[in-house]
Design a protein around this nucleic acid. Structure first.
Lengths: 340, 340
DNA sequence: TCTGGCACTCGACTGTAGCGAGTGCCAGTC
DNA sequence: GACTGGCACTCGCTACAGTCGAGTGCCAGA
């Protein structure tokens, strides 16, 4: 499987041309558009080898070549340099994100920006509660047997939950409950919370016990077990670019996948900080997304990571450009979060 | 323009058949499938009249007839009875909505349910802040110059906003602020809030004034001017049903419209309570949605209305069934909200 | 007013032919 | 041994002609 430099150059040229034109590329067109310094016949021989190795394929006998998923993989890993962003793009990012008033706003602006810049479907995960610290817990009486629990996290997330108490409790008890949970939990990471919540129940006075038990189970259930991740999505209309050629003619499976929070989380929520993950076609674990590629990365203030973001598009996408944009946006969002 | 009963029956039959088969319907097939009691030739004469009046049209000369937007309109207004829901559907609605833990949960379940039952794109507006009463306002110090404002409404909505104070203020002042805003605003409708907020600033002590001024402007801006409506969407994958025939082959404009909150709000947020609004094709004010129809209604506890919900689909949709489902779901959601 | 009959229209489908982009192979050259 | 030019071949695409049939409009008659 000796792929010498020229064969790699041919593969690179094929990927670039195909991404640009969306048409199978032939040997003659290739030598015309790229300075390969050899004749079409030679390129044809190289192509035959590349095809044998599974990097490219022919849609039909008398057509040009098209990269396979494996070809894109090789291209991404070894043949492409991440494109530096243009000053215009940098400015666009700053302009778009400046002036966000709260977390919701930041996330919405980010996801729209990402969709616009990459011209693909963008996905942004809200800062994960798992990775957030409790900044404040508030209990608001709704009736004598109902409380609204509001949790504010250091990442700016605010979660609320209705608590149905086993019986009516006086307002003073609510004050006590509030003081207790705040004393114990403020400043802790939610992933480390369970034992603390448990202790809270055990240490509370007999009077408060029933209410505290209910409260703690809501806390655990909401914030830890049913880890309440949120996700924003934008740019689904971009799926229709490139006619019906991409995604083998049917958007259905893609749209279905995009409606599943679980799927989206898996796609973008598992990246590591400062690493960019690229999943190409087949590499994707969901059947519905076999015709798509995903570029994702983590973001967070400084070098920590609190959530993921990324884009989804056809396997035939501009990987270097997309990777650069995703990284840049993630970095800017991180800086923005660090300021709060 | 005398449309006698038989002509109306013919139109109804055409709409029903076309919706079911998605193919232009001819005179012969019509008399076979419906008991019209006349011959195909007679039906053809009626069709000619209906076409002249603009209720149906021929895609091409040697094809059957297809309803026009105007035809659907007549059908909806005069020719269809709202289908009663099947017991199975009723049970599905109840099963789906029981066990929702909070407002977010209710809205998400509702929108999914609606998408599933109608097999179309579903849209649900969160209870509008305009129509909500303030139940509680909470101020949480984030730093000496920053507060988190959390508003809990009687409809279950919880909104938060970061407040950047003009200068540092002591914790005791925050307590005072909290007491003041709650005293003044709890129990009021947000639409009547502006003068009250104004009074709040004027009545506050010199010490609190700067902070109160900032706070009040955030309150006004967030909750009233930039009326913070939220919307949930589901079932976009349903747009791909019926091949590429619906929506004249391109989902693009539809997907684009669905990304615009403003558009969605206009679509479903303007209905009146207990009225079901049907917008067919052309009647829609957005060019992007000329190929689509929208069925929407309001919902709320009891006979009041706090928000809208509806579905969007091809003009060729089962109007009686869709209208029935939308109404039923809105009623159930209203009951659910009334319980809280 | 309705009906049966009939001529007509026109899209859908089928089969054929020519074109051309692109290939694989081979003999010849550096 | 690597590269090149030439050539035969493949096969999808387009255009064109022909057939079929669903569906229509119209008309004479009941």
């Amino acid at each position: 499987m000796g792929l010498d430099d020229r064969k790699l150059a041919v593969l690179r040229a094929i990927v670039e041309d195909y991404v640009a034109t969306q048409e199978p590329v032939g040997s003659k067109a290739l030598v015309e558009r790229h300075q390969l310094g050899v004749s079409p016949a030679t390129v044809r021989n190289d192509m035959a080898v590349l095809e044998e190795e599974g990097y490219i394929r022919q849609p039909h006998t008398s057509a040009g070549r098209v990269p396979t998923d494996r070809g894109y993989r090789l291209f991404v890993d070894r043949l492409s340099r991440v494109k530096p962003l243009s000053p215009a793009e940098r400015r666009a990012i700053e302009r778009f994100l400046v002036g966000a008033v709260d977390l919701d706003d930041v996330v919405h602006r980010t996801v729209r920006l990402l969709a616009q810049l990459t011209r693909q479907v963008a996905v942004v995960q809200y800062p994960s509660l798992q990775r957030s610290q409790v900044r404040h817990l508030e209990l608001v009486p709704i009736s004598t047997t109902r409380l609204m629990l509001v949790m504010i996290a250091d990442t700016g997330r605010v979660e609320q939950r209705l608590v149905e108490l086993p019986g009516p409790i006086p307002v003073d008890d609510v004050t006590d409950l509030r003081r207790l949970v705040n004393e114990k939990l403020v400043g802790t990471r939610l992933s480390e919370t369970p034992p603390l919540v448990q202790a809270l129940v055990e240490e509370s006075s007999p009077q408060l016990r029933p209410a505290m038990t209910t409260l703690s189970s809501v806390l655990l259930e909401t914030l830890v077990e049913r880890h309440e991740e949120r996700i924003a999505l934008a740019g689904t209309a971009n799926l229709t670019r490139g006619g019906l050629l991409d995604f083998q003619g049917s958007l259905r499976p893609i749209l279905e996948a995009l409606e599943e929070q679980v799927v989206l989380l898996k796609l973008i929520g598992e990246a590591e900080p400062s690493t960019t993950r690229v999943l190409i076609g087949d590499e994707n674990e969901f059947d519905n997304l076999r015709a798509a590629s995903v570029v994702s990365t983590g973001y967070g203030p400084g070098s920590t990571m609190v959530g993921g973001l990324g884009v989804l598009g056809p396997t035939r996408m501009d990987y270097p450009g997309t990777i650069a944009t995703v990284r840049a946006v993630a970095r800017y969002v991180g800086e923005l979060l660090a300021q709060n």
